[in-house]
């Protein structure tokens, strides 16, 4: 393992994050605050509780997941797409590093950033509503696993994308709708039976459900299923990464 190279990539990416610190942190904090105003105050005043949890508190895990998924995908995809776009990727390809080390550097940095943001959202939520964390170790585990898995997905998107539009398509057209429909703001049990079945096709349901369980011990699906599904995504992303590594897909011509 070329640890120095991994460290160099990680530091490079974190420096990029530091340069854009204000917009990286401010934007999610502001949007989270807006969610609390709109969903918490306006809708929450009518719903009051969901699954026995105060509505404002109930949506906190979903809000954190929403940011975590978006930021992981966007950070990692941009991180690897940009060198491809500017041409500086030549240096990565000609350096004595394996593809796995490149992935660890970029995905590690992207996941770190989104975990930090997730924790900032959590802290922001505390200002608005009471938040209880029943299983802190599981909460952190879900946070880290999800951040890594979706940073891997972002990395894959960054490799696949050959234009800025494609970088936007997946987060905007897939991740956001799936998160909204994945029980970020409601319990799946409030849906009609048919839509409940449809919902369980949505992989993000399992992530949000497991994450919420670590807070309030309420879940749409059994927590072990959530963990299993998260691991399945992780393995699927690793599989695709392995294939890219084998074939040099969109990296070497």
């Amino acid at each position: 393992m070329n640890w120095r190279a991994i460290h160099a990539i990680y530091r490079f990416e974190m420096a990029r994050t530091a340069r854009t610190l204000m917009q990286s942190i401010l934007a999610p904090v502001i949007s989270t605050s807006l969610y609390f105003v709109v969903f918490g105050a306006a809708i929450g005043s009518r719903i009051t509780t969901m699954e026995g949890v105060d509505y404002g508190s109930f949506i906190v895990p979903g809000l954190i997941m929403l940011t975590l998924l978006m930021q992981s995908v966007m950070n990692a995809s941009f991180g690897i797409y940009f060198p491809k776009f500017t041409g500086t990727i030549y240096e990565l390809l000609s350096a004595p590093i394996s593809f796995i080390e490149i992935v660890i550097g970029y995905v590690g940095a992207a996941a770190t950033k989104s975990i930090i943001l997730g924790l900032i959202i959590l802290a922001t939520s505390w200002l608005f509503v009471p938040v209880k964390i029943a299983h802190p170790v599981w909460m952190i585990s879900f946070l880290v696993l999800t951040a890594v898995t979706f940073s891997l997905l972002g990395f894959i998107i960054g490799i696949w994308a050959d234009g800025f539009e494609k970088l936007q398509i997946v987060p905007l057209l897939i991740i956001t709708p799936l998160t909204f429909l994945g029980g970020a703001f409601y319990s799946v049990s409030v849906l009609p039976p048919f839509w409940q079945v449809v919902t369980f096709v949505n992989p993000i349901v399992y992530l949000i459900s497991g994450f919420r369980w670590s807070f309030y011990e309420v879940a749409d699906v059994n927590v072990s299923v959530s963990i299993a599904m998260t691991l399945v995504f992780l393995v699927a992303c690793l599989g695709i990464i392995w294939w890219i590594f084998r074939t040099g897909y969109r990296l070497k011509n």
């Binding site: 070329n2 120095r4 160099a8 990029r16």
Partner: peptide
């Protein structure tokens, strides 16, 4: 957006 010093140091790190 990198500085000259940072980018040259990065290259050295990349090569281990």
């Amino acid at each position: 957006f990198e500085s000259v010093w940072a980018t040259v140091s990065f290259s050295r790190g990349l090569f281990g």
